[in-house]
Design a binder for these strands. Structure first.
Lengths: 340, 340
DNA sequence: AGGCCGAGGTTTTACGTATAACGTCGAGCG
DNA sequence: CGCTCGACGTTATACGTAAAACCTCGGCCT
């Protein structure tokens, strides 16, 4: 057990302590431990340094290293809300790629889940080498651009990105696939349950839906709801119980919304998919946890995070990033069926 | 727009640049910006410094500050998997309290969700002032204890915590409440669907279940499954279709498992709760997204994170932390009913 | 008048690391 | 033999900040 010698209350050993213990100078310790010693330090000496370091339980002081090198090998990931499984996966992917490049990832979830992040630097206790952001207030964005800190935006409005590199999921294509799937099933009267969130990623969905329906004799109504199951249920119940012809399919911006619609349908005595088709978006755990399992658009969330970080690294290294949007895939399950 | 002057490619301004611009010494800048100048610097001078700083877009170099002060005002949060909503909430709570104390939170999700974290310091790009960990390999734990870095464990085995302070949810009481609820409904034949994860938090559930059933004429079988809806469904289907008397209630370690059981029941033609009662644990979004809504044990996840960070701060400041476990609450919904 | 004190700063130092610039010493070579 | 050169280290310095120690000067008390 034992482990490295270290008396309680003793300050952490520095490279100088290691040097003293190994009978060499501090510079030599730095060379050896930094793996930059080929031909500069004899092997026996290097070995002496390494064992001394192990003995003392030496670990370099990151603050000092960062100060010296002027970089931290740390990137900031800005996401709206960690409690959304999607962003947890994005983080996983981003962290994986970052680790591969010797980078760490600092996470900044914006305070209340809804709005874009305000000042990422409030929370950034370490300096940063780059930022990967899914949404950000334009003043914070301007600050970052002003610092010419490498920045990559995730699925954000090119018009408001101040020229920052952007990585995209092909959300529009996802929405197109959903729409064509439903059209093929004979649906002609849609309800679009949209997220009541001011975000480009949802605006894109609405636009794509309009585009996909262009030229077809199709009715579409739009209702918005906050991104919760309960809110979606309430909104859907109201919309489906409204007078006039009832939509035969509900297209949702998100799986949570779709789950809410399914509950509303059941409450109203409508069977899914026999009486009503419902589609989700994201393909989270939720999509296969509910009955019926949701037809939805699978977003490659981890891959998205990976691509984002790969792009950030490319930007840092001055290489041209891969600009093609990541493909998404319609997953047909049990919540959609032929129109009556 | 404009914002702070800063030419592209120019190095970030330092406190010395600000000093030069304001016609004072660097020390004065540090005093003024550090709010430690009462009586040491005249107001007009202070104002000159502040405007100069604003003008140049000065922001202090965190690495330098951390080096100088010997602390980073940053705590590490170690969790098994961010993709579990529960831990996302824990993070939210912890980050809130941390912010209140001027701390930041660095997140370290252990690589593959399953096992405990291996070396938190691999990912910690900044030095740390403390660690808040939900599970950790014993060698990593020993390292931290050896550094006498303040450490607080979240819901972990006191026997393997090397004396670290521990913050607990009253999981045992949660399990007791579930069991008594079902007993009161007349159930006498249980299936316990346990998580196939080697973690103390699940061992506690099993023990508490045994305790609660002690002295009652009750049968209980235990089956384990990985923490996914699909795995739970498979396991439950097998267990419920097995020959012999069928359990009338399934107690699950987790809401995901419970959702899987509900699907299995439907597959087997069993109605929930008429033919089979099912209970979850955690009360995640999932619990109210499925049909029927789950009777489950609500864990105050955010409060848990808050308490954890409060405790860490107390440990750092040498105060005695609040050691009472956080109460949990049985939430009775639609997945449990009287035994037939 | 001499001394003390407080206001309003400045000079200096230390934090721990990485690395550029600089010895030193023996071997090899013309 | 004198010079160079490579191998093996060492000395010195800079990174940007916070804060302790120090300086200067005018006012005021005794």
């Amino acid at each position: 057990m034992a482990g490295p010698q270290q008396e309680a209350g003793a300050p952490r050993p520095t490279s100088r302590d290691v040097a003293r213990a190994a009978g060499v100078s501090q510079a030599t310790v730095s060379l050896v431990l930094g793996d930059k010693w080929r031909g500069r330090v004899a092997e026996p000496t290097a070995e002496r340094v390494r064992t001394a370091a192990r003995q003392l339980g030496y670990r370099p002081n990151l603050a000092a290293r960062n100060l010296r090198l002027g970089r931290t090998r740390t990137a900031l990931l800005v996401v709206p809300a960690l409690t959304n499984e999607f962003f947890a996966h994005v983080h996983t992917g981003a962290a994986r790629v970052a680790a591969r490049h010797g980078f760490g990832v600092l996470l900044y979830p914006s305070p209340e889940g809804a709005g874009p992040a305000r000042d990422p630097f409030d929370s950034a206790r370490a300096s940063l080498d780059g930022v990967l952001a899914s949404s950000m207030a334009s003043d914070a964005l301007a600050t970052i651009r002003g610092d010419d800190l490498p920045l990559v935006m995730l699925d954000s409005d090119p018009a408001h990105s101040l020229g920052a590199t952007t990585v995209n999921l092909d959300l529009a294509d996802g929405m197109r696939q959903v729409t064509e799937h439903l059209l093929a099933l004979g649906h002609r009267d849609f309800l679009h349950l949209a997220a009541a969130v001011d975000s480009w990623t949802f605006d894109v969905r609405a636009d794509a839906l309009a585009t996909a329906l262009h030229g077809t004799d199709t009715a579409v109504r739009r209702v918005t709801a906050p991104l919760t199951v309960a809110a979606a249920r309430t909104a859907a119940e109201a919309a489906l119980a409204a007078p006039g012809p009832r939509p035969t399919a509900v297209i949702c911006d998100d799986d949570f919304l779709a789950a809410g619609v399914c509950k509303a349908a059941r409450r109203l005595g409508l069977r899914v998919p026999e009486d009503l088709s419902v589609t989700g978006f994201d393909d989270l755990t939720l999509a296969t946890a509910v009955e019926p399992e949701l037809t939805t658009v699978r977003l490659p969330a981890e891959r998205f995070g990976e691509r984002g970080m790969e792009t950030l690294v490319a930007v840092v290294e001055g290489r041209a990033p891969d600009a093609t949007p990541l493909p998404v895939e319609l997953v047909i399950r049990d919540s959609t069926g032929p129109a009556r």
